[in-house]
Computed example of a mutant assay.
Amino acid sequence: MKKVKAIIERAGDGNYSVYMDADNISYLITGTGTTAAEAIASFKDNYEDMKRYYAEEGKEFEELDFDYQYDMASFLSYFSKAFSLAGLSRITGINQGQLSHYVTGHRVPSARTKEKIQKSIHSFASDLSQVSFV
């Protein structure tokens, strides 16, 4: 199964979109919503619709595995169910007010800040993966 990037972004109007970043696929899937979660759900539904359409038309459908990649606003929106801004601030060392600007799209983090956030979250996830209970 081919792995394809699915880019999740917050638009200027505050809505979210998901789109495939692949040139060599015979179809294109997108999704939109008022939240990142809605956009991802729309994207997944549209993928299933495309799969059904190809089956109905008797066409061969290339199954894909998606590698979701987020802009900062989309990440913060989507994972707000797991991370509060205060908690994310503690994990990353980035001021909570600054993170709030990223959520609203008023500011965009620099490449260095994005890398710092990504490394901090991966480190936190690694710590969580080692948890065991007695």
Rank of each mutant, 00 (worst) to 15 (best):
K119N: 15
M72S: 04
G87R: 05
D13S: 10
H122F: 12
M50Q: 08
I8V: 15
G58R: 02
M1R: 13
S42Y: 01
A39Y: 01
K81F: 10
Q98M: 10
S123L: 14
R107M: 13
A41V: 08
I40Q: 00
E57T: 09
K44Q: 09
T30L: 03
T92Y: 04
R112T: 15
L128M: 13
S77K: 02
A22F: 03
Q98Y: 05
T32M: 08
Q69C: 09
Y47T: 06
T104R: 13
A73F: 02
A37K: 03
M20G: 06
I7H: 02
K114A: 15
K51H: 06
I7K: 08
R52Q: 15
R107H: 14
Y53T: 12
A41L: 12
M72T: 03
R10T: 05
A36T: 03
Y19M: 11
T30D: 01
F61Y: 11
A37T: 00
A86K: 11
A55P: 05
Q98R: 10
V18A: 06
F133K: 08
R90E: 15
A36F: 00
V131P: 06
Y54M: 07
H101Y: 09
S126I: 08
V4K: 05
K81W: 06
E9H: 12
F83H: 02
A36D: 02
E62T: 14
L76Q: 02
A6Q: 05
Y70D: 04
D71M: 06
G33P: 02
I121F: 10
D65T: 13
K81R: 12
I25C: 09
D67C: 00
Y53D: 12
E60K: 11
S129V: 02
I94T: 03
E60H: 12
S80N: 06
S42P: 04
G12L: 12
H106Q: 12
Y102H: 06
G87M: 02
H122W: 12
F66L: 04
V108F: 14
K5H: 08
K2V: 15
I94P: 01
P109T: 07
E9P: 08
S84P: 00
S132L: 09
R90M: 09
A22S: 11
F83V: 03
K5G: 06
M72C: 07
P109R: 05
R112C: 11
F79W: 10
E48K: 10
F43V: 01
E38D: 11
H122Y: 14
A73H: 00
L85I: 05
Y68D: 04
E56F: 07
D65V: 12
S120D: 06
D67W: 02
L76Y: 00
V131W: 10
A125F: 11
G93M: 09
T32A: 12
P109A: 11
L88A: 00
E48N: 09
D49N: 14
G105M: 08
G33W: 01
K51T: 04
R107S: 13
S84T: 15
M72R: 03
Q118H: 13
T35K: 05
T104F: 08
G105Y: 08
K5N: 14
E115M: 15
S84G: 05
G58T: 05
L88S: 03
L64C: 15
R90V: 07
L88H: 02
S77W: 01
K119T: 14
S126N: 11
E62H: 08
G14W: 04
H101Q: 14
V108A: 14
Y102V: 05
I29Q: 05
